[in-house]
Design a protein around this nucleic acid. Structure first.
Lengths: 149, 149
DNA sequence: ATATAATGTTAGATGATACTAACAAATTGG
DNA sequence: CCAATTTGTTAGTATCATCTAACATTATAT
């Protein structure tokens, strides 16, 4: 099941908000993504349809297990690409943020893995523990998530 | 004037076909991009509207000067990203091709430039002559265009 | 030179994403 | 506890990129 860029952004945002607030609101998502509440409403209903979030009108927004797994993958991809752009390429914080967001969607697992490995090597890390490794271990440098969860 | 990803792909394809054939046909573009002729027709009309190609019904498809300049930029961006993915990251040919296509669109000039410089440095090239440099010189490794034009 | 094949166009539909405007529900502060 | 505010939903519209099907034009081959 292929997610659109837009859907991935919503999933990612929901996941991140979940680690900050206990209740996730339509309005918050709208603010974070600079969309209208109407758009968010429509987006979460489509994500509900495909089983990635649980939601009832006026209720709480919650990721399903499947949704959470996907969100984690998205965020990890985002993190590794951003780290790479900043630390290896020397992109500015703002550019790295924006570009990682867009790029992560289109990279194959294979290339993402190679970028992760390359980043680790260049940063002088001897043991590879990146989230993008097949065994899904956490990366000591790129997974901010480690601290949050 | 912001071009969509789709529009950039059309421009790029037209430019590349131009260096191969003397007449560019709707059908060729459709085959190359795996779109229907109807879609291509609609796309070239939109590109005509914004002054990037010249076209009359049943006539020849030609890039305007503006269109050609933009197409060159797109192709150079494509080339540098692909070279980078293949030579530095070690992505497969097929992945690099696909990913470069998608990535080039979302990179800022600044980051693209940095990727070009990084690639040059890593490949051991002493003088930076990449098309993405401010002075718009040609790159001895990444600009396939050099040979074609 | 004309029938057939190839090529190009148009009309109309679809699906995705977003918007505005109007409305409905829930929360909150006196 | 209820008026006002905040929050969420719905309906309707727009744009973009694509498609199919039908039609129109151009090229070709005998």
């Amino acid at each position: 099941m292929e997610l659109s860029n837009s859907q991935e952004e919503y999933l990612k945002t929901i996941y991140i908000l979940k680690n900050t607030k206990n209740e996730i609101r339509v309005t918050e998502i709208a603010n974070k993504l600079n969309k209208t509440k109407a758009s968010v409403n429509s987006a979460i209903n489509s994500l509900k349809q495909i089983g990635l979030i649980n939601y009832e009108p006026y209720g709480e927004i919650e990721l399903t297990n499947e949704g959470e797994k996907i969100a984690q993958k998205i965020i990890e991809a985002n993190d590794i690409v951003k780290l790479f752009l900043k630390e290896i390429i020397g992109a500015t914080e703002i550019n790295a943020e924006e570009e990682a967001k867009a790029i992560k969607t289109v990279l194959s697992d294979d290339t993402l893995n190679k970028i992760a490995k390359y980043t680790h090597k260049e940063l002088g890390l001897t043991s590879l523990e990146c989230g993008y490794d097949i065994n899904n271990q956490r990366c000591i440098t790129c997974a901010r998530r480690k601290d949050n969860k």
